[in-house]
């Protein structure tokens, strides 16, 4: 039982990060039909910028704030200078553009930062909390709490404000959104900005546990994408559930089978789910009514 709890704790922590990355994928996909494989780089920029600013003597809260702003600026530039000029291009072309942007950002990070691994001091120290024979780091609770706050804020914003409804409207019917006067380009910029902020916050919170480096984004983007697919591309609930499930799957596979197979087991389960439910757990087939 203690073992089970231990795996569950670590799975939940990693899963929360996957969920946030998947949420970023979902937001951008809904607002602009782009699958943004540079999503993981936002996480990297958040972590690395905070690390280097604190090393330069900037207090942690301010460093974190600047890191989020930097990620948002990168997200907006990505949309303005790489995605917008290619508006109307096919999905494959747009995916190639985001992969290119991801490689570019990783390369730039090697120059601006460095190639080593870095960590941040945890917010509430390193003493593990013991629950039912298992132990959990205070920082894991910070990650989980951060994820919950972000998800709730996002939900309230999308569900309770007219601007949020305009985001749903744009996702539901782009043509109609333009015909009622919604500037769908601005909705696209907005989704890139929010996704970048979410990714950066995830990166800052998780760095004390998992460390960060210039290339941490690659695998996170892949896992976040897998989580989004598992939950059903385009569904925010699916992104969160998919992320948590993927994290738990990995943790249990690593614990009960072998840590070498954790990625394989996770992806195998996703393949099986998608084989049985091609639209993911919460996805819906697009039905056009005439």
């Amino acid at each position: 039982m203690a073992e089970f709890l231990q795996f569950a704790f670590s799975g939940l922590t990693v899963g929360a990060v996957y969920a946030l990355v998947a949420l970023g994928f979902t937001l951008i996909y809904n607002a602009s039909d782009v699958v943004n494989f540079a999503q993981g780089e936002f996480v990297m920029i958040g972590g690395m910028t905070t690390v280097f600013l604190t090393l330069a003597g900037v207090p942690l809260p301010l460093a974190a704030l600047i890191a989020v702003v930097a990620a948002v600026a990168v997200g907006l530039s990505l949309h303005r200078f790489a995605i917008e000029p290619a508006r109307g291009a096919s999905a494959v072309v747009l995916i190639m553009i985001t992969i290119g942007a991801s490689i570019f950002l990783r390369g730039a990070a090697q120059v601006v930062f460095d190639k080593r691994f870095h960590s941040l001091p945890p917010l509430f120290g390193n003493d593990p909390i013991r629950i039912g024979g298992a132990s959990i780091l205070p920082q894991s609770l910070v990650v989980l709490a951060g994820a919950v706050v972000i998800v709730v804020l996002l939900w309230v914003f999308i569900d309770r404000t007219l601007f949020g409804k305009a985001v749903i409207a744009t996702a539901a019917n782009r043509l109609a959104a333009r015909l009622v006067g919604i500037d769908t380009r601005r909705m696209g910029s907005f989704s890139f900005a929010v996704s970048a902020a979410i990714g950066a916050i995830a990166g800052i919170l998780v760095t004390p546990i998992t460390l960060t480096s210039y290339e941490v984004g690659t695998l996170l983007a892949l896992k976040g994408f897998a989580a989004a697919m598992l939950g059903g591309m385009g569904s925010a609930v699916g992104a969160v559930v998919g992320g948590i499930m993927l994290g738990l799957l990995e943790a249990f596979a690593a614990g009960y089978l072998s840590s070498q197979y954790k990625d394989a087991v996770a992806f195998l389960v996703i393949l099986i789910v998608l084989f049985v439910m091609p639209h993911g757990l919460f996805g819906r087939a697009k039905i056009e009514r005439v």
């Binding site: 409207a169 539901a172 019917n173 109609a176 015909l179």
Partner: peptide, 11 residues
């Protein structure tokens, strides 16, 4: 008022 109504179905 576009052809095929084009409403925001989930709203």
């Amino acid at each position: 008022v576009p052809e095929g109504r084009q409403l925001f179905a989930p709203l």
